[in-house]
Design a protein around this nucleic acid. Structure first.
Lengths: 159, 159
DNA sequence: TTGACTCCCATAAAATCCCATGATAACCCA
DNA sequence: TGGGTTATCATGGGATTTTATGGGAGTCAA
């Protein structure tokens, strides 16, 4: 199983290039092509990214929605018109569109954060904040998440 | 059934490498790949670890939860952005990310402790404390576990 | 020509490979 | 059963490779 994991902070150089972390590249290439799809997150000041799987998932869920709703054109437009397909060069670097840089308020550093099926790109300190809050939230709801977080072999029967 | 059992204390060398105990490696390889997944424990100053089974369980429980997009991002961030996939080298050693070392307050030794489906990595003396407390708790609740454990207080009290 | 985008090479740091050692555990066989 | 031989394992360290990053030079289009 190949998913996006861990987080790394990379530099944006004077030409505007960033290295996609090599572990992420290997996930992307496993999905079938040497590049990324990026779009501004709907819910946070970050960039959503992924490979072919992510795009496929999104198109499918848009299709499903269109069976029920009629005004999904706006959503579809919003999504796809701001989605960029960037192939990275042989050193694994991409250069980000101005659009996305603004949305995530990036300066000269980016944090790549793995979220499983996709990843996000954050202004580093903004990511720290988000992550800390997310961790607290997850801890509060860990019984919803399931036993995997804190079970040992026999603890399952307690409470 | 292959599960993580017993505990061993290993050294972190000058390059930051630690040997994954060979018994653990055989469990991991049995699960399908020569590496570990590690993340900071949500509930203690230790590192949780496991193989593909552990990650699969977590991913599946995330997929089962249908949340608002905002919540999903927070949850997956908490779970995946601090999870590291480390392939060990041919001598069975990994080098721990700074992140995890800090969380578990590791210096030059680690205790690997088997917990069945997963394992934990502790700063050795912190593990001793934890184990003593865990033992008391286990005795208090031994009726929950089932009839098979008719141990008395002094059995298994070796070393 | 300028600017945006590659390609290509250089470098330093980090990760990994490869081999050596000593300790311990497992094995064997008279 | 005891003593010696083999494996296995954790650990040390040198050599090699990978990775992120910087910058020069070539390509293409407006």
């Amino acid at each position: 199983m190949k998913i996006f994991l861990s987080n790394t902070e990379n530099k944006i150089d004077s030409k505007g290039r960033v290295s996609v972390p090599s572990q992420f590249r290997s996930v992307l290439e496993y999905q079938g092509f040497a590049g990324v799809y990026l779009y501004p997150s709907f819910t946070s000041q970050s960039i959503d990214g992924g490979g072919q799987n992510l795009i496929k998932q999104i198109s499918e869920s848009v299709e499903r929605m269109q069976l029920f709703a009629e005004e999904t054109d706006a959503l579809t437009t919003a999504l796809f018109s701001e989605t960029y397909q960037l192939n990275y060069d042989q050193d694994g670097r991409i250069s980000l569109p101005e659009n996305l840089i603004e949305h995530a308020n990036l300066k000269d550093k980016v944090t790549f954060a793995g979220l499983g099926q996709k990843f996000q790109m954050w202004q580093p300190s903004a990511f720290q904040d988000f992550k800390n809050k997310a961790r607290i939230k997850a801890l509060e709801n860990r019984d919803l998440i399931g036993p995997s977080l804190n079970f040992t072999n026999d603890q399952k029967e307690e409470k």
